[in-house]
């Protein structure tokens, strides 16, 4: 930790206001170049406490930067995580108001819901697979609170890893009935295929992403609770959306997820 509590509280307020008022801000590492990873997660945690104090519930957890190619590009060894506030949950097929966001993008993901608690360190895929209640298709809406998506990793973590919303599908499957690495995903925007991929794009296996989340939470003395909804990370690149766009994502063995923006 390099920042004092007052600074962390002040940065949390600034970033949360940016989200709530849809007013982007400059990245916080410009003003605090020495801030470290603990500071970044400390700011995220302070934002979470502000929401909980206001009566919001935490609907789930999310992983970001789960592509090994992207991690290499950013020069890091681990992904990042954030939380999903309840008001970001949209029904499959929802019409979503663009005024809710600054410059939203969508990415296709596999979401995992746990049956039992998972805690690190040392959590591995062999513990995650039996702890999965079910797997469901999902689309995450990300929306950086930074101007022009100009940020670095610490600024992104502080900004709750750009979490802005999510849409879960309507079909659930047991983990044992799926081959998650080869599970294919086809994203269409306005009827045209824009992105394709398979589950292995997420750290080789979406369940590995959950193990890594448990291990990262352990360093803050936290665990993944039973019943947690976890967005495991983007299988496709993030696609920008605007007013009038319709998104439809087809998942192998998991149905589809769709939404439109108004």
């Amino acid at each position: 930790m390099t920042l004092d509590q007052a600074t962390i509280a002040q940065l949390a307020e600034r970033l949360e206001n940016a989200e709530l008022n849809r007013q982007p801000v400059t990245r916080i590492t410009d003003a605090y170049p020495d801030m470290d990873w603990d500071d970044a997660y400390g700011i995220q945690s302070a934002i979470r406490k502000r929401k909980v104090a206001r009566g919001n519930k935490i609907a789930g957890l999310k992983m970001g930067l789960t592509s090994r190619a992207k991690m290499k590009q950013m020069g890091v060894e681990t992904p990042v995580y954030g939380f999903l506030p309840d008001y970001g949950s949209y029904a499959d097929g929802a019409e979503i108001d663009m005024a809710t966001f600054i410059h939203p993008r969508v990415e296709a993901e596999v979401a995992i819901v746990t049956r039992t608690e998972l805690s690190g360190p040392g959590c591995h895929i062999g513990q995650v697979l039996p702890a999965i209640d079910f797997v469901v298709a999902a689309v995450e809406i990300i929306d950086s609170r930074y101007e022009n998506f100009r940020f670095d990793l610490k600024s992104v973590i502080a900004d709750n890893t750009s979490a802005a919303g999510f849409v879960a599908g309507s079909m659930i499957r047991e983990a044992a009935d799926l081959d998650m690495p080869t599970l294919g995903v086809v994203m269409e925007k306005n009827g045209e295929i824009v992105e394709l991929g398979a589950g292995a794009a997420v750290l080789g296996h979406p369940a590995s992403s959950v193990a890594m989340l448990a291990n990262m939470l352990a360093s803050r003395d936290e665990a993944i609770p039973a019943g947690a909804f976890i967005m495991t990370g983007g299988i496709t690149a993030a696609v920008a959306v605007g007013k009038g766009d319709a998104i439809n994502v087809r998942f192998q063995d998991l149905g589809k997820v769709s939404m439109s923006f108004k």
Partner: peptide, 17 residues
């Protein structure tokens, strides 16, 4: 929707469908 995972020398180089 069937997914494809392409590895070279043990590293995932692309996924598709």
């Amino acid at each position: 929707t069937c997914g494809m995972v392409h590895e070279k020398n043990g590293e995932i180089i692309a996924t598709g469908a």
